[in-house]
Design a protein around this nucleic acid. Structure first.
Length: 421
DNA sequence: AGTCCACAGGAAGGGCAGGCGA
DNA sequence: TCGCCTGCCCTTCCTGTGGACT
């Protein structure tokens, strides 16, 4: 289209973004401040933990190696934010002339021993040609480069391993063993580890030597209560919203809903952000309590959608079987589900897995929160798992039927309805 | 106390894919 | 490129289990 054409069209048809731009915004500054990635200037109700960690890390500013630290706490209790806050503070504390290098690794993104070491070592290498590749090198070669580069820094290096429990469950404790004894090979640098974990019990999976070296200091973050969450939200809302943008109920409601889960500040901030974005889309300049309830439903549905989307094919079929059975009876057993699953597989021409394997998949669905399963004995009726769908049946079925892998199910559904028990 | 049911779940091993190193 | 190694997914086989029933 030529320039005149564009001008002409703009006169007769309003731009699709017009109503959103002209409505103004209930945000007074960047909404990114409501995301978990934003690090605030202060962390309310974490003064004690900050102080504990500062006391440990301050050893490094005096030129000694600080003890390794294990940080425990559930999601959204401020563990990562506190460690990053300490790292920032340490980089500002130049008075002693000592410098520390903090390297942060999320073990969900780098989830093998090799990828963690490769990620850390590449942080210290500017030349892309010199960097360790994603694969192809032996562990020994990448460790050797790691030792060389860390030693060349001639300073204290603090490696922060976030979601460490996941790495240990997936790849064992080899990485921790090697990192914890690396100081024996360093002449000019020192290395300390801060491990962040959700699960207190993951240290049971560690070798005794690793356990004692790594857990020299432990800090446990307790969940926030509703009043503490309210303070956190108030502090953040002051930065982000105009004074009149939130009705008085909104922050207490977000805090109460997040406190009901497990005192998750991340969830509280997400509720507030999604509620505000929903109000904004409707062209309102005030966020109401209803927006928070809608945000809660949306977040829950998004979580289920994402979990279902990433399931393997056979697990999707299994969830579909559970949904189908749940339409008839709310509580079911492994045997009930297996019969339904088996019929479904025959109908759509898929090789069915064995009942043994399906038992394991049901346990996995339980861990993902899609079903609730508990072992029960019915005397002569036998011992089995009693299973209940933990997500809305209709929405889950719709999400699964939209899946292209399960599209053939659409054609056979009517037939199945008549063949199932 | 012994029997029975319907599984749970551990152990061992097969098949396959992908990474590693010569 | 090719053989070896490792991890993952799955099956087969097996023993164990809790509680109603006899």
């Amino acid at each position: 289209m030529n320039e005149h054409g564009a001008v002409h069209e703009s006169l007769i048809r309003p731009n699709v973004f017009e109503k959103y731009i002209s409505a103004g915004s209930l945000f007074k500054s960047d909404r990114e401040m409501l995301r978990p990635s934003y690090l605030p200037k202060s962390l309310p109700h974490r003064e004690k933990e900050i102080d504990q960690m500062a006391a440990i890390i301050s050893t490094g500013l005096r030129g000694d190696r600080p003890s390794n630290v294990l940080v425990f706490g559930k999601t959204g209790t401020g563990k990562t934010a506190t460690v990053k806050f300490i790292a920032n503070e340490a980089s500002r504390a130049h008075s002693t002339g000592r410098h520390m290098e903090f390297v942060y690794v999320n073990c969900c993104e780098a989830d093998t021993n090799y990828s963690v070491v490769q990620f850390i070592v590449n942080k210290f290498i500017d030349d892309p040609e010199e960097r360790a590749p994603y694969n192809g090198w032996s562990m020994e070669r990448v460790y050797s480069l790691f030792r060389e580069k860390v030693d060349a820094l001639k300073r204290l290096v603090v490696v922060v391993l976030d979601e460490l429990d996941r790495l240990v469950y997936k790849a064992g404790d080899d990485l921790l063993y090697n990192l914890s004894r690396i100081n024996d090979d360093l002449k000019h640098s020192k290395l300390s580890i801060i491990g962040i974990a959700n699960d207190l019990k993951f240290t049971d999976f560690l070798d005794a030597r690793v356990k004692s070296r790594l857990g020299e200091e432990r800090i446990v973050f307790s969940p926030y209560d509703a009043a503490e969450l309210r303070d956190i939200l108030n502090a953040r809302a002051e930065l982000v919203f105009h004074a009149e943008s939130l009705v008085p109920d909104v922050i207490p409601l977000c805090s109460a809903l997040a406190a009901q889960e497990h005192g998750d500040a991340r969830r509280a901030l997400e509720l507030l952000r999604v509620a505000a974005e929903s109000a904004e889309r409707e062209g309102r300049k005030t966020v109401l309590s209803d927006d928070v309830y809608r945000a809660k439903n949306k977040i829950e549905l998004d979580t289920v959608t994402e979990t279902l989307r990433t399931l393997p094919y056979q697990s999707k079929l299994l969830v579909l079987s559970i949904v189908m059975y749940a339409e008839k009876r709310k509580i079911m057993t492994t045997g009930d589900i297996y019969a339904t699953y088996h019929s479904l597989c025959i109908s759509i021409g898929v090789q069915a897995l064995t009942q043994r394997r399906i038992g394991d998949l049901i346990s996995e669905l339980d861990m993902l929160g899609l079903v609730r399963a508990r072992v029960r004995s019915f005397g002569r009726g036998g011992r089995t798992k009693e299973i209940e769908l933990a997500v809305p049946a209709a929405e889950t079925r719709d999400l699964l039927v939209e899946d292209e892998l399960l599209s053939s199910y659409k054609n056979t559904r009517a037939k199945l309805q008549t063949t199932l028990i």
